[in-house]
Design a protein around this nucleic acid. Structure first.
Lengths: 217, 217, 217, 217
DNA sequence: CATGAATGAGTCTTCATTCAT
DNA sequence: GATGAATGAAGACTCATTCAT
């Protein structure tokens, strides 16, 4: 899809594709997919409407490109890293923290992702652009599943149906993702949110009988 | 679906209104708001397209009517009832159970509700029909808030920010609502789901050290 | 396709379909299929552009409807009639006469028909709207074939390949059809043209050795 | 198809022009004028789209160039040649034979020529690129006229209106040109077709009373 | 009040043409 | 001269909304 390589002059224009995606991200987020006009995107990107079609065959493809692109990056935040802690709770917190930080950096994307049901297995099918579930969306779900299964195996989580726990984790995170999106607090809170998310996910909201020192952050 | 039957001239006609709403609920759920055509709704309601406009000024208003209507009923499920238990956990479970049962009876509505961000404070703004948050959506949120505040006061919940706990409750429920919508299991599971929802909300997913008998349902 | 039946008032509007076809016939003839805009047709028909789509799903379908409609009528001119003469030459002249008269009454149609290769088995494939040969076009060809075969059987035509004679007949008629279209002479000449067409088709353009009085019409 | 080969700097470059015309001939024939994109032509010619505009100011001009070019060559086939027979029938056959042979060598061109009404005085005006009759098309017509007038003068043709006989000749030839285009028979049949064309043109399709030996081929 | 054809503003998409490199 | 990405005018088609019947 990216065929124009940097040429002479100082820099180049393959950036256009990125510029279109960036503009589309904002516009889709503001107006929703159907409400967004190609012309809006083009204008925001500082180009002509026709130019969009030099990079994407259909309006749909612009959306798909955004979703795939960000989903990939999003997935990377959840993947294992060399310096990840051993302890499951700590591990979870690290990953959730990375994910929330990513969310804060790409708020517009998440507005779109929700519309397209990124986190939701069964959300508004009609809002979706494509009938088939987007590939990356599916892998996102598996990643949650994997995390949870790992937790169960490690004995850190209750041996419930993994599918259910995965949804619970998703739901919990969704709640905080929304907080991140809405609150407008600075990035500083990503780690706090992560800590709280993991804590609630693991121990719930019930009052702890005898709060041992340091037990609750 | 609702044919105009020969009626006494003075009899209630607003049945048509209900028929339109019922048809719209299905169509919106299947195709999303933007993907649904007035003609589709009219056809499914067994009336002419123009007739819809005798009952609703705009397409938007049909959606709003659906949301308001169901939100009201939904709220009623969460409201206090004379026979509600005293114990917070039991109380919560009763209400959540009612709500999940309602969800199972109105799956189509929830597909729409998600698209419009019913549970989500900040979901897809672009997908929304109206910029201002729908009135009932807001009250739905307050109801969650009330529930949580009640729990905190009763000493059943950790004394955290109510807003956060409300979102956590919402996220948890959302996870199970999705299960209900997706699984396709019969209504039988509403209470099970409710129990699990409340349990996870209260105690989290972490493995309980020494599961005392009866500790986990 | 015609579902609107005449209603109260004085006359009615199922005429709209006919009005659209009539307008399209003129516009297609003037500007060619690609050069004709739906808006042009609508304007000429005195209606809104969108209305065209209440009667035809695609621009293509308007053209197809014209071709099918006229082809059918055209075929009827060539078909046998009770009062057709016995003698092959006279028979041919009668039919060709009817056809030429029809041509003169529907000049615009023929401009379109040529563009779409109505007479031509292999004309400009690219100009055609649909890849598959139009059904009626094919039957038109068979009708020519039938005529010629009849002539061969009757011993009136040389026993050559029917396919070839059919084309020759088609080519001859085409020449006079064009004359009819171009000349702009009144309808009076339809029969003259027919007589000449048949005469040339049967006896060619070579000088008749001793033109017996009355031999050449 | 024509790659730019390393050439001496002063060598003729207009080869590109020919390459473009050759490519355009094929593409126009396959898709029709309106259906052919400049990009298609450029691709088939192995050059960039912009390059076409270094040789032709407009898409129209490419078509005109093709028509003019081929029309000129086509006319040459019909012109008198030193070794042409004296006898009109033989002369006609020789020229028609040359023309049909040319047709077989340039099938693509004829698909275009028909679309643009090369043979037809009054065919699809809308399909035409330019409103004014193409210059060469006109001379083509005059040439037919000239041939026929010559025949009349020589006493070989009936003294009818030359215009009419010219059209009859055109129509007859058109029929066989189409045969040539459609049949896909090898070049071998050019002479046969020519003989038949001339025979039918001169003597018609009517059964000859007493076929004198050798009278009909 | 119901009807449903007519309306026409709104958008995606195409593609001839331009022009900086 | 060649390149090919950018341009933007043009046009088919959709569908919410109106209104005469």
């Amino acid at each position: 899809l990216v065929r124009r390589l940097p040429r002479r002059r100082d820099e180049a224009r393959p950036l256009l594709r990125s510029a279109i995606l960036a503009a589309a991200e904002t516009v889709f987020a503001e107006r929703g997919f159907h409400g967004a006009r190609i012309q809006d995107i083009a204008t925001k990107a500082g180009i002509a409407a026709g130019t969009v079609y030099n990079h994407f065959a259909h309006k749909d493809d612009v959306l798909v490109a955004i979703l795939e692109e960000h989903s990939r990056e999003l997935l990377e935040q959840l993947e294992a890293r060399p310096d990840d802690p051993e302890d499951f709770a700590a591990l979870l917190e690290a990953r959730v923290g990375r994910l929330l930080a990513y969310v804060q950096r790409h708020r517009a994307f998440f507005a779109i992702a929700y519309e397209q049901g990124l986190f939701a297995g069964g959300a508004a099918p009609g809002a979706r652009v494509s009938a088939r579930p987007l590939a990356k969306v599916e892998s996102f779900r598996s990643l949650f599943l994997g995390l949870v299964e790992q937790g169960i195996k490690a004995g850190a989580l209750e041996p419930l149906e993994a599918e259910i726990l995965a949804r619970f984790l998703g739901g919990t995170m969704r709640a905080f993702v929304l907080s991140s999106l809405t609150d407008g607090r600075g990035d500083a809170s990503a780690q706090e949110h992560a800590a709280l998310t993991v804590d609630l996910f693991l121990h719930g909201a019930a009052r702890r009988e005898r709060a041992t020192p340091g037990g609750r952050r």
